[in-house]
């Protein structure tokens, strides 16, 4: 299944290449806007302009990497009845879908590889302050992203139609991940919400570790692990209910 996801990413390469172009453009635009906002101010909310630009570039790169197509695949396969074949396999459904997504991300990364230097240049990124910490928090954040995507997709077993829900989910998750604006700038209530939600681990937290805004990663890592464990339980529970529904209702 991982291999299929990987090959599909390559099969849809024109799609991904277009996304790469959009990525470079977005990073460039964000750079222009924030440079003008900062003007001659040295720092805002504890972030220097350079750190902020590096942060935004990374957050957008990460949004691209943690973007999941597994919900679309699941939705398509439920709608067309192809899910029958997935259910008839000796391997568990969630395992198949997670494997698919992992392969798809790897394929996406492979296509992304040549673009990364361009993005880093446009976003004027320097060497990471804490490289190992960055990778750890990002990988854990990615796991959370996949778990959430699977959880959203399972709604399709009840409603058949998840297009709008996925779109909403994508908007909300990207916003609260801090892809447009770093979470440090979120005012009062919004900041609290963003702090509680798990989306920050896909964008803000790893990027902040990279630029040195977060120096001690032990706290975030513990919370990430807790989210992974909690979401795991929720996924298993939701899947067993969805599966029971298929088994009794015929989907």
């Amino acid at each position: 299944m991982t291999r299929i996801g990987f090959r599909l990413a390559l099969a849809y390469r024109s799609n991904i290449i277009m996304t790469c172009v959009a990525l470079v453009a977005q990073v460039f635009l964000l750079r222009m806007i924030w440079t003008s906002v900062y003007g001659s101010r040295p720092a805002a909310a504890g972030l220097t302009l350079d750190a902020l630009l590096a942060y935004l570039t990374l957050a957008n790169l990460q949004a691209f990497v943690t973007h999941t197509i597994v919900s679309r695949i699941i939705h398509d396969r439920i709608r067309t009845g192809m899910v029958f074949f997935d259910l008839a396999r000796p391997v568990g459904y969630l395992r198949q879908m997670a494997g698919f997504q992992a392969g798809n991300t790897l394929g996406g990364l492979l296509l992304l590889a040549p673009v990364i230097p361009v993005v880093l240049l446009v976003g004027s990124i320097t060497v990471p302050v804490n490289g190992a910490g960055y990778v750890i928090t990002l990988v854990l954040g990615y796991v959370i992203a996949v778990q959430l995507a699977l959880l959203i997709s399972l709604i399709g077993f009840w409603t058949m139609e998840i297009g709008a829900v996925s779109l909403l989910y994508r908007l909300v998750s990207q916003f609260f991940a801090g892809t447009m604006v770093p979470l440090a700038f979120f005012p009062g209530f919004l900041g609290v919400v963003a702090e509680i939600l798990p989306f920050k681990y896909m964008g803000y937290v790893p990027a902040a570790v990279y630029v040195g805004h977060i120096s001690d990663i032990s706290g975030p890592v513990v919370v990430e692990l807790a989210w992974i464990a909690g979401l795991w339980g929720l996924l298993v529970l939701t899947w067993s209910r969805a599966h029971r529904r298929v088994v009794i209702q015929g989907g």
Partner: peptide
Amino acid sequence: RSQLWWDLPLIESLRLVGSLY
């Protein structure tokens, strides 16, 4: 209906079956 992956070469779907089973 088909269990084959629409956008991939036939051999990929067969490899998938091989690994799933």
